[in-house]
């Protein structure tokens, strides 16, 4: 069981949940958060926004009953969490773009921190796309080379596809697809990694509910992913 340290409402849809939990999680990985509710027995897959050795922080969007319940957790409440899940983003250095759409900005915060810790000479631009209002932008500024924010439009319109060696993306499927297409159209040499989202039951690779057809066959988003090379993904 993990103790809730704080649960901060950012706006009507998003909140930042901080819990006490010893961990050695890496950027792009996620946790299965259980609800204290007999009615909803499946845990919720939530990516890591930030961490220390003893704490985990999650940026969560209220999407349904389960995430709504997580938003109502109070300081000193407890929730059950399991081991860290998924592969995470690769450690790379150089000219890098991090592109997050909506709640897809969540993993990029830790990615920025870890990539800068890995090689402080890396030049990392952060692109944040929001539907209605921006949030958590300031947190990216100290480490990013530049933070580009787009509200209500298409963040990928702002990306210079010929500037980067690596592009990491997380957001709605349509955004990742458009980014992939635009990169190809611009003859970008960047290696693009996407973090996919799929409905999951187990998070441990045993149920095959999040199995997705990639170019080298079916892969489990929870266990083989969630991060894949964009070239491996079929966008439809």
């Amino acid at each position: 069981m993990a103790k809730i340290i704080s649960n901060k409402k950012l706006n009507e849809e998003h909140f930042l949940l901080t819990i006490e939990s010893e961990n050695n999680a890496k950027m792009g990985q996620f946790y299965m958060l259980s609800l204290n509710n007999q009615k909803m027995m499946l845990p919720r897959p939530i990516s890591i926004y930030d961490r220390t050795e003893k704490q985990l922080q999650f940026l969560i969007k209220i999407g349904g009953e389960g995430t709504k319940e997580l938003s109502e957790l109070k300081e000193n409440d407890f929730i059950e969490i399991q081991d860290v899940c998924g592969n995470g983003f690769p450690q790379v250095a150089g000219k890098i773009a991090l592109v997050g759409g909506g709640c897809g900005i969540a993993p990029m915060n830790l990615v920025l921190k870890e990539l800068k810790a890995y090689d402080k000479s890396s030049e990392i631009d952060v692109y944040l796309g929001y539907g209605k209002e921006a949030f958590l932008v300031e947190g990216f500024k100290p480490l990013a080379n530049e933070v580009i924010v787009n509200i209500g439009g298409y963040i990928i319109e702002d990306v210079d596809f010929n500037k980067y060696e690596y592009i990491f993306v997380c957001g709605p499927n349509i955004m990742m697809q458009k980014l992939h297409e635009k990169a190809k159209a611009n003859n970008s040499n960047a290696k693009i990694y996407v973090s996919l989202e799929k409905r999951m039951a187990c998070g441990t690779g045993i149920c095959l509910c999040c199995s997705t057809k990639l170019k080298e066959g079916n892969k489990r988003v929870c266990k083989d992913g969630p991060v894949f090379l964009s070239d491996e993904v079929y966008y439809d």
Partner: peptide, 23 residues
Amino acid sequence: HCGNSGERVFETASGMMNSVGME
């Protein structure tokens, strides 16, 4: 067998539905 396409899991009250399809 590659299993079923589309969504494969749906949570219900005290349970779940699956459509994995023998992958």
